[in-house]
Amino acid sequence: MSASAAPAIDLPPLLASIPGLLGDLRSDHAGETGAVMIYRGILARAADPAIRAFARQHLATEAEHLRLLEAMLAPGQRSILLPVWRVAGFLTGWLPALFGPRAVYATIEAVETFVDHHYEEQIAKLGHGGAEGALRRLLETCQGEEVHHRDEAAAALGGAARGPLLRAWAFVVGHGSAAAVSAARRI
């Protein structure tokens, strides 16, 4: 199943029966909003044709994830911090693009490593049947696509050593993503 072929999910009963689900989905929506903006930031700055193709392809996937989450969550259920996530996402893509392909790929690898774990935590809370199972399969599909993005970025980096600046940047990106999720779950 592709994310775009996901079935309609009756969310209100799930929200009533699964503690923390609204916060999880709110953070997913905020994260996908930020991801769309990361790729827009890359495209706004990067000149390298391979990076631009990479960003366009991944932007399409992230935009589809965002569309699916927007279809599930009413506007009042979304994070009020979305303007912050848009700016932060754009800068998270634009800044590494200043430094070239390695910085861009390292950024995507760091973001998607975090996202893989983030989705895994949510998937573990869900059952396999009914609406819960449908939501689980949707999140598994999104997770798989994010892992593919991570693996593509890692492959583009190859076995090249990551110097202290790239490691520091990846640390900032990973911890920034965690802080954003924590805030989006609540606000």
Results as ranks from 00 to 15, higher is better:
46 A>T: 08
68 L>I: 12
109 E>H: 15
148 H>R: 15
78 R>H: 06
75 P>R: 01
124 A>F: 06
176 G>S: 00
49 P>R: 04
135 L>A: 00
71 A>P: 02
50 A>C: 08
90 F>Q: 06
180 A>Y: 05
16 A>K: 14
6 A>R: 09
105 Y>E: 05
63 A>I: 02
148 H>P: 02
118 H>E: 08
57 Q>E: 15
68 L>Q: 13
7 P>T: 00
26 R>H: 04
104 V>E: 08
7 P>G: 00
16 A>R: 15
67 R>N: 10
84 V>Q: 13
136 R>E: 00
21 L>Q: 03
177 S>V: 01
74 A>I: 02
176 G>H: 00
60 A>N: 06
149 H>Q: 14
40 R>C: 09
70 E>I: 04
110 A>Y: 02
103 A>H: 09
53 A>H: 10
183 A>E: 08
112 E>F: 00
150 R>E: 12
122 Q>L: 09
153 A>G: 02
74 A>L: 11
131 A>M: 14
72 M>K: 07
112 E>S: 00
71 A>W: 07
41 G>T: 01
61 T>D: 15
81 L>T: 09
91 L>F: 13
178 A>G: 12
110 A>H: 03
6 A>H: 08
166 L>M: 10
96 P>C: 03
22 L>D: 06
57 Q>A: 13
117 H>L: 13
102 R>N: 13
142 C>Y: 09
178 A>I: 07
133 G>R: 10
74 A>G: 07
19 P>S: 13
180 A>W: 05
169 W>Q: 07
119 Y>V: 11
16 A>D: 15
27 S>A: 15
